[in-house]
Design a protein around this nucleic acid. Structure first.
Length: 140
DNA sequence: GCCAACGTTGGC
DNA sequence: GCCAACGTTGGC
C-alpha cells in the first residue's frame, strides 16, 4: 500500500465535484509532467490519495482512492506519453488541513508537497498520511 | 498580479 | 549536450 497527494485547481475540479461523482469516481486526466506521470504509473488499485486544493486557500480536503490503475490519457490527442488513473471519494475531512498547518507541523517538514511545491502528484509516507488524517479529524 | 521555482524547447 | 529563453504552476 502506497500513499499519495494529488493536487487539483479548485477552479477546474474541486472536492465538491469529486463528491458528486461518488463511487464511480473520475479520471485524473490532464497531467503533463513526467514526474507526476511516473508517480501515477506506479499507483495500485486501493492506494489512498490526499485530495489537495491548490491556488486560493490551499489545503487537503479529504481522501480518495485509486479505483483504476494508469491507462492512456484520452485528453492527450495522439500523444501516447500521458497517463491517468481513476479515483473515487473515500471520506471528507471534518476540517480541511491548510498548507499553513502542514508547514507548521514538525512531522510533515519533509513532505514532497513542501519540497517540490509544483509537482502535482506526490508520494506521501504512511506516517505523514496518518498525521494529516488526524489533523483532518477523521479515521479510515 | 507578482514572483520564485522549475520544466521544456530549440539553437548551437 | 549545454544553456538561454520562454512557459507554467502555485503561494502569497
Amino acid at each position: 500500500m502506497q500513499y499519495w497527494l494529488i493536487k487539483s485547481d479548485p477552479d477546474t475540479w474541486d472536492w465538491k465535484d469529486q463528491v458528486k461523482v461518488g463511487t464511480k469516481g473520475t479520471s485524473w486526466d490532464g497531467v503533463r509532467n513526467y514526474q507526476a506521470r511516473n508517480n501515477m504509473v506506479v499507483m495500485k488499485k486501493g492506494d489512498y490519495c490526499l485530495f489537495y486544493h491548490s491556488q486560493s486557500d490551499p489545503g487537503v480536503q479529504g481522501v480518495v482512492k485509486v479505483i483504476k490503475e494508469a491507462y492512456r490519457d484520452h485528453t492527450a490527442d495522439d500523444d501516447d506519453r500521458w497517463k491517468m488513473v481513476d479515483v473515487a471519494v473515500v471520506k471528507a475531512f471534518k476540517k480541511p488541513v491548510s498548507l499553513k498547518e502542514i508547514k507548521s507541523k514538525s512531522g510533515l517538514k519533509n513532505m514532497g508537497l513542501l519540497k517540490q511545491g509544483r509537482l502535482s502528484v506526490n508520494p506521501v509516507t504512511e506516517k505523514e498520511f496518518s498525521i494529516i488524517l488526524e489533523l483532518g479529524g477523521i479515521k479510515l
